[in-house]
Design a protein around this nucleic acid. Structure first.
Lengths: 336, 336
DNA sequence: CGACGGCCTGGGAGCGCTCACAGTAGCGAG
DNA sequence: CTCGCTACTGTGAGCGCTCCCAGGCCGTCG
């Protein structure tokens, strides 16, 4: 192997361009106070030498890394099975790329992972953090906050006004819309297979359900799925059917849960939507593929990601933006 | 705001522990040649000052970043819709974390994204790269290679032996097993809705199909889906049914495609498996949720991710490991 | 004609760390 | 008693960049 051709440094470029290090740096960083001649010479030298700035050196000098952490607080399994997650991940990554930031993915499910993440965040690896899957009151929230890093979370955390900066979809309002839609369709015995109650989405959507039907609904008509999965939805529905044999509508905690609801209803010989109407949540790809295609509450997931990045960028710029709640939208299909 | 309490540096720790910078550094890095007393004093001082090493400074000095890029070469949409992707992403992230490496996610779908990625890889941000979704002959492959960075790819790229280090599942063998299974079940008119032919998986799986049925199969019995989606599978199946009305088996390019195949067959009034047997590919979560539950070829996706990291770690350690092909496994369910 | 201010440039001083090297102490062997 | 060896410690010299300041050059104004 040849003796590892040393990567060109800024001094090599300076020498090749016949200017000083300082001038090269100025050109590289949007150069104010640089003559056209010097600028051109540097551009040429950069091309000629194949120079690329060394990010570590730059970070050390500027105390900026150009990277942002995406911290996944929920247990890894749960988040990675959720069809929403890829959408969020993608929109965050793209929005960051547009700002010339890069995304570092960190898992913070287990306690040991959380320790690692915390240490990592304190190590000046990243300029800020995006938190996904934290629940209100999660100690991670405070611990990350104590690192002094700008943070933006997704979902509903803390009371409005206080707490960290966050972006959420209007889960509660969406659930209300779903129930009202079912009522307007003449449904009388409306039930719900809610999402897991240790997630902010699960709680908020159930709250919207109760908003419309009153707390009395909590008694028999509510079953919470253990997970955001098909299997959990199916299991919960079976239980629900035993408790409320005369139900004529089910609000599912998510589309994936709804797919389990449909399966259980099918097995129980109930026709959808003739005997039972079903509403999902998310408008995941699976919604249109189900039989019948699913009425659902669309979440603007891509926009959540984009806005999270917007807010984080604002915080990096020293501003103090307000948390956001984005509207959801009922999409009516054949299941209601 | 208080005057930003300067983060403690290694010198602060040294002063607090009453030793020199060098000794602190030695303790921090697994310290050979450090007395127990000094070691203890440093540990204490680290705790007391709340010191965390500054990664930029360390990277600058060591020329190691502790980060690895995960480059997504396929157009972002395609990859993010694929249920396999989260599994791969998760296993890579976890495996990297176990080695104290962190994952940076980079999108390289569009040409401009590719440029950004290449510049990034040359900028000493990362110690190595994992490439996902590249096709054989993709120029990105060579360009990344030219950056001099250790690289491991997923899927089949280049000829065995040559080319970059890669980890792939035995797509071709799996497809052969699927066809032979259908034959052993007495199916006579076996067709395929292959995956998109501009992906390595799509090509390999079709090749396995042809291996068993002979090149003659290429004529009428093969339709390639435009994408790895439900909709594309449905469309392709409709076309296939027109061309081969008497088909009695379909090998789908993936489970998601198979879900489209099932939908189209259902709509055409064909019973599964009585009239037509269907085999999927991947053993994605959706496979068991379909009606009927899908016979499929399981891909050891989590292991692919883990092995990719293993190989990359080996390359980082200066070794030159061989590419890997992991076995696939037929999972028989009710659709055949 | 000198003072002044706007452009532009060069170079020193860090950023916080690791690494190589020089140097000290302690101890057994010769 | 000296030598040499091992165990440990401190220090200087970077790693490659940005920031800041001093200074040169020019044109303009009093």
């Amino acid at each position: 192997m040849p003796p590892a051709p040393r990567r060109p440094t800024i001094d090599d470029v300076a020498a090749s361009a016949g200017v000083s290090r300082g001038t090269v740096s100025r050109v590289l960083n949007g150069g104010r106070y640089v003559s056209a001649a010097a600028s051109a010479a540097v551009e040429r030298a950069v091309l000629e030498t194949g120079y690329v700035v060394n990010s570590s050196a730059r970070s050390l000098a500027t105390r900026r890394s150009g990277a942002v952490a995406l911290v996944l607080a929920e247990s890894a399994g749960r988040l990675f099975e959720d069809p929403s997650f890829p959408v969020l991940l993608r929109s965050c990554t793209q929005a960051l790329a547009e700002r010339d930031l890069v995304l570092m993915l960190l898992l913070a499910g287990s306690p040991s992972e959380r320790d690692r993440v915390l240490r990592f965040l304190r190590g000046a690896h990243v300029d800020g953090a995006l938190l996904v899957g934290v629940r209100a009151g999660d100690p991670l929230l405070e611990e990350v906050g104590r690192s002094g890093l700008p943070v933006v979370t997704s979902g509903h955390v803390g009371e409005p006004g206080g707490g960290p900066c966050s972006v959420a979809a209007d889960d509660r309002g969406g659930a209300r819309a779903a129930v009202e839609h079912l009522r307007s369709r003449g449904r009388r015995r409306i039930t719900t297979v809610a999402g897991p109650q240790d997630t902010s989405g699960g709680v908020e959507r159930l709250a919207g359900f109760v908003d419309v039907l009153g707390p009395r609904a909590g008694a028999a008509d509510v079953v919470a799925a253990q997970d955001w999965t098909h299997a959990a939805g199916e299991r919960a529905t079976t239980e629900l059917l035993q408790r409320v044999p005369d139900l004529d509508a089910v609000v599912a905690g998510s589309d994936v849960v709804a797919s389990g609801v449909l399966a259980a209803l099918h097995r129980a010989g109930r026709a959808v939507p003739d005997d039972v109407a079903v509403v999902g949540f998310d408008d995941a790809p699976v919604a249109v593929q189900l039989d019948p295609p699913l009425t659902t509450v669309r979440q603007p997931l891509a926009e959540v990601g984009r806005r999270m990045v917007d807010l984080l960028a604002a915080r990096l710029a020293g501003e103090d933006p307000r948390s956001l709640v984005l509207p959801t939208e009922l999409v009516v299909r054949a299941s209601t």
